[in-house]
Design a protein around this nucleic acid. Structure first.
Lengths: 65, 65
DNA sequence: ATAAAATGTAATATATATGTTGCAAAAAGT
DNA sequence: ACTTTTTGCAACATATATATTACATTTTAT
């Protein structure tokens, strides 16, 4: 499923996928694929994204069932 | 770094690494390596572990810097 | 002290996250 | 309308998470 919370947090910070990717140290495609729900990212990458966007894991990657 | 919070949550539920592994659908070694900090697990695996232990991502995998 | 259970560790194999390059489509700016 | 930026998508290459098997070590139970 798409990660809409991630995309919202990113645009809220006025960052493009490419800018976020550069900050996190990953490729633009990787960010895009995570947002579109086609990748199962590693924990360290999730943490890196969270720190770049000033959020926590629960904020961006946790879904109550 | 070792994930002591994960280990504590597991023993609190009175589960061995092998039992947790079976619940989550992963090998015993994988659980051991995550607890000892030698693996960078995938997000879906982290979520699976959290649900098995009735915790959230922040509870088990987030560290304030 | 002994046996059983739990955990650590290592080798090899496989699946998949991620990188790279390139191009197309869409969105935004002028 | 046109240009620029952003995003989507595909093919191929690489790194690494994870599985499997096996054995050693530690911990727990009797």
């Amino acid at each position: 499923m798409k990660n809409i919370k991630l995309k919202l947090a990113r645009v809220e910070k006025d960052l493009s996928q490419e800018e976020l990717a550069k900050i996190v140290g990953v490729s633009r495609q990787t960010i895009g694929l995570i947002e579109s729900g086609k990748y199962n990212p590693s924990l360290s990458l999730c943490v890196g994204i969270c720190k770049a966007l000033s959020r926590t894991l629960d904020d961006l990657f946790w879904e109550e069932d």
